[in-house]
Design a protein around this nucleic acid. Sequence first.
DNA 1: CTTGTCATATGTCGGAAGGATATAGTGTGC
DNA 2: GCACACTATATCCTTCCGACATATGACAAG
Lengths: 181, 181
Amino acid sequence: MDVRTLCLGILTLGDASGYEIRKMFADDAIGEVFDANFGSIYPALNRLTEEGLVVCTAQAQEGRPDKKVYSITAEGRTLFTHELMKVPARDRFRSEFFVTLLFADLLPGDRVGDLIDGRIAHHQQEVARLEALARQESAGALNTPFMVGFGLAHHRLAVSYLTENRHLLENAGSPVAQIAE
Amino acid sequence: MDVRTLCLGILTLGDASGYEIRKMFADDAIGEVFDANFGSIYPALNRLTEEGLVVCTAQAQEGRPDKKVYSITAEGRTLFTHELMKVPARDRFRSEFFVTLLFADLLPGDRVGDLIDGRIAHHQQEVARLEALARQESAGALNTPFMVGFGLAHHRLAVSYLTENRHLLENAGSPVAQIAE
DNA sequence: CTTGTCATATGTCGGAAGGATATAGTGTGC
DNA sequence: GCACACTATATCCTTCCGACATATGACAAG
């Protein structure tokens, strides 16, 4: 499942421009489970257009630059449905934050605490953002209670895990603490 | 932080071959927070060797093919420490499974349940695997209680979240359920 | 009035890497 | 002897990530 397929999926829910699609990944709950940015979205949309899976209509706007709105074709819908029936590939995850924590004993003593504090704050911001999203009446078709709830559970776990387990790391590089052990 | 940096980090903990490094990503807790496979590990090691950040020693083995063991240089250590002090980039996550669930209403009625069942089973296997890892006396330097605990928390959350919230999806495509609503 | 910032828009480039594939050696089971 | 699994190294091609570029329009600050 590539970004092209994701764009098809999003367009099954309604027409959108490249910029709007990218905003969905950035702001909506779909961004909790899939990441895509301009560098892949625009080439994907261009390719889909060439392949007749979407059609593109240029629109002028007032107070804003012109935009290109993409609509899915019947062929595009068929392909997306077919892709959806495939066995999902395994998840992919990379976190530089956690890799850094893995080598916490190489960091200066207060660096680990700072990193963890900053990270907890980030997750709390995300919780607040998703809670606000959940409260919206017209949150958008991508922000189902299931998806928003998953994002919330995910960020809340991170906060609680870091809070409860930071003690395992925070004295790791401290010679005084190691002498005490 | 790229795979090259990750290889350097792993080699600070001891010499290893490309295959062993890849096995760490596949089997150890580091694989819960960073994904790398042959396609990126070997080019990374070759590049690190060219740049003098690691040195490579070919070793013959009994009962197995020969292997190339990589050792980090002092220059490599310095670079890794320097990289570790950088602000970690944001996490990257993609899950075809959850994307598929996002379009659950396009799936046949029992497909969603099958996907969720299979997914829960997968997470439970991972929990069992990590629990066994946590019980090992010599689990390896990469399998710290913090990292293993994070992986366990993560998979356990997935199981409980899917179990408790699958009802939001499983009647999604059912006309009978929608009439009842 | 000018400059800077932000949001809305589209787009591209170069390097990294993901998945699949290839090859080789060794051992085990049928 | 063949198939399979594990240990090993390696590569290829497609995708995409992060940074960057450009344009339009609105707004704020000096």
